[in-house]
Design a protein around this nucleic acid. Structure first.
Lengths: 179, 179
DNA sequence: CGATGCATGTAAGCTGTTACATGATTGC
DNA sequence: GCAATCATGTAACAGCTTACATGCATCG
């Protein structure tokens, strides 16, 4: 049994697998352009992580791919595919499922420390930003719906659904506080 | 202007403030008992973090609180209260709002690599665990509704709403794949 | 031919983890 | 008196961040 992949490793390895082969730079760009800001796609995380995956035999760089400026194309090995498979299947574990944190929710427990004015201001601003974020994820969803892969569509749909739920929740909080 | 608090620091400092004064051990227990498994509440994170907050002047330990076994009660200073306030208000920033990650969603983008059988198995297991997690958060919500603080209720309500959205989304994915 | 972008990588620092260590208290 | 729990803490390590460094390619 091989080691477990971290979330970032899983996403990136699966991504490379999906594209069949790609460069580290493209992986970085995908992370940077994703609607979620959880991962920055920083060089200091991506390159060492990919080296790690190569050392562990999950990734291999195509030998003929050096184009003069040190660019390498990567592809996922058989062991890598198995690791991706295991990473996905581990997603049904309760620890993984319940590991989400929502900074809006964490804060909502302590809104009592704010003055009425500040609280109203905070809620308005949050709802505003959430609406902005929602329209971004919706735009992302529209882009995806034109593509062939239905799974990308499902993923983006999930982002929209959850963002909508967060928004409706915050609005109901604001409403209840106004009374 | 003082430094920004991390999410864990913000939650813990706000928690101590809410309880007026409490021990490090209680902070740990609260983290451990929270429905989200994002923070383990490990000694190796909590004690150094609280020391940090004390060094920075956000926390102070009551001098008369040593009960013979080295237990200390902590309270939040004025500067600490200001830091909590700033931490909450920063929650409306787009970077903070969009920093959520959902391991179920990350994986959904790559469900194409699974066989039909594995995919069905994965979705069934995930939906099962999510339902279990939902009933836990609902129980938590019921507990909170008996308490005086409406903000705790709001927080738990948010957890329920978002979990419901995740569940409905996953069920719709399963349904669409069955056709 | 110089600015911008492509592409890879390293160094130092921060914040979390697990695992271990220590000692007092409480309950049977 | 001994086991479990309360309570605090440290050591080693993992995985991310920012900031820096390097060098080729492309375009005006």
């Amino acid at each position: 049994m091989t080691r477990r992949l971290t979330e970032l490793e899983g996403v990136c390895l699966a991504l490379i697998d999906k594209y069949d082969r790609c460069t580290a730079y493209r992986v970085r760009r995908e992370l940077q352009q994703a609607p979620s800001s959880h991962w920055r796609g920083s060089a200091g995380s991506v390159y060492p992580m990919l080296s790690r995956l190569e050392v562990d035999g999950f990734l291999k760089s195509d030998s003929d791919s050096d184009d003069g400026r040190g660019r390498k194309t990567l592809h996922v090995t058989k062991a890598g595919k198995a690791a991706v498979n295991a990473w996905i299947m581990a997603g049904s574990e309760i620890d993984v499922i319940s590991s989400v944190t929502d900074p809006l929710r964490s804060r909502s427990f302590f809104l009592g420390v704010l003055s009425d004015k500040q609280r109203a201001q905070y809620l308005d601003a949050s709802i505003n930003q959430l609406e902005k974020y929602l329209s971004e994820t919706k735009a992302h969803l529209k882009d995806r719906s034109a593509e062939v892969d239905q799974f990308e569509y499902f993923g983006s749909l999930g982002a929209v659904k959850v963002t909508q739920a967060r928004l409706e929740w915050l609005k109901s909080v604001r409403k209840q506080l106004k009374q």
